[in-house]
Design a protein around this nucleic acid. Structure first.
Lengths: 114, 114
DNA sequence: AAATCATTTCGATGTTTGTCGAAATATCTG
DNA sequence: CAGATATTTCGACAAACATCGAAATGATTT
């Protein structure tokens, strides 16, 4: 992962509304959520939300697809995995930073590769 | 970890110079590096660097200590661990985002807790 | 095609960031 | 204390960011 990509991804997440937005999409799963639903959930005016959605999209963290007149946004898990991978590899002293992530995760098979 | 703290940490890392700076400090280890050495390594004028050091310090990602007339900066691994922990817990769909971090790390004892 | 619904784009505006030289502060040395 | 060294603070300025209503675009329904 290029460091410029990392900077953009970090920048996209470095904002209250957008962090909440991304968390919401992650929670929503691959199905995603319509822009309107997100706006309501976050209590942000439509035009403001649109700006933030664009930032996240531009950073490659979320994907957009159309369903009827709604635009559905969903988190790009691959991008997030790549970002975390970069941080753990480059911004940690070996295993020192690795948080308490249990290694006995049941299904380690499914892993949306970057 | 409060989401506001996360936003500040992400914002601090979301800049080419600062990301490079933090990586440099991580690589340097607990010993840290003097501001002057960092400025030279990054090729950034002293006053600009000072600004970036302040941002990272403010975000709690690095620590400062004085040694003679030099100010030594070092990475705060605990903060980074906390940040990664937050991201993995809140911005990932369970284990989906967990990057390929080998579970057979020799010394899983030493872990600078947040 | 007209009305309607969902969302984005466009202005305008205030705030924050990034940059860097010059001046100020802190520490050591003689 | 005077001089040298290491770093920060100040001031000024351009660029990017965040916000939000109003207008424009895209898609559906009748």
């Amino acid at each position: 992962m290029e460091s410029e990509t990392v900077v953009r991804a970090l920048g996209a997440l470095a904002q209250e509304h957008r962090l909440a937005l991304f968390r919401l999409l992650v929670q929503a799963g691959p199905e995603g959520l319509a822009a309107g639903a997100i706006a309501e959930a976050l209590g942000v005016p439509a035009s403001s939300l649109s700006f933030h959605l664009a930032q996240l999209t531009n950073a490659g963290l979320i994907a957009q697809r159309r369903d009827g007149r709604s635009l559905i946004y969903s988190a790009d898990y691959g991008a997030m995995t790549a970002l975390l991978g970069f941080l753990m590899e480059n911004c940690c002293s070996g295993a020192v930073c690795a948080p308490a992530v249990p290694c006995d995760t049941k299904d380690k098979t499914e892993r949306t590769a970057a």
